[in-house]
């Protein structure tokens, strides 16, 4: 199975995960500072800055896009409860 390398820059932890993993599935385990609310892509509490490797995340769904827009998220931000890794190297940190 393809793997991706995800770095949580705020705690400086990198781990290798299978493609398809959502950021939420690992960020709490490593103690990263991303905070979750609804865990369902509605509240934008988990807003996360993609420092690099944005192209290695699955494109946001229409719903995620809408929530990002409604919350006036700057470019390069994603919802960690939604964003799925595809491969390559990705660096993220809490917004």
């Amino acid at each position: 199975m393809p793997k991706a390398k995800v770095t949580f820059a705020d705690v400086d932890v990198t781990l290798t995960v299978p493609a398809g993993t959502r950021l939420i599935e690992v960020s709490e385990k490593v103690g990263a500072g991303i905070t979750y609310g609804c865990r369902e892509g509605e509240c934008a509490t988990c807003l996360t800055k993609v420092v690099s490797g944005a192209e290695h995340l699955a494109a946001p769904s229409v719903l995620e896009d809408q929530v990002l827009k409604d919350s006036f998220a700057p470019r390069g931000h994603r919802l960690a409860c939604q964003a799925q890794v595809l491969g390559g190297e990705i660096v993220v940190k809490p917004a």
Binding site: L15, T21, V26
Partner: peptide
């Protein structure tokens, strides 16, 4: 528990 703490965190934890 000790082994989980002393090795790097993994997806299965």
């Amino acid at each position: 528990l000790a082994e989980t703490l002393t090795r790097p965190v993994s997806l299965n934890d």
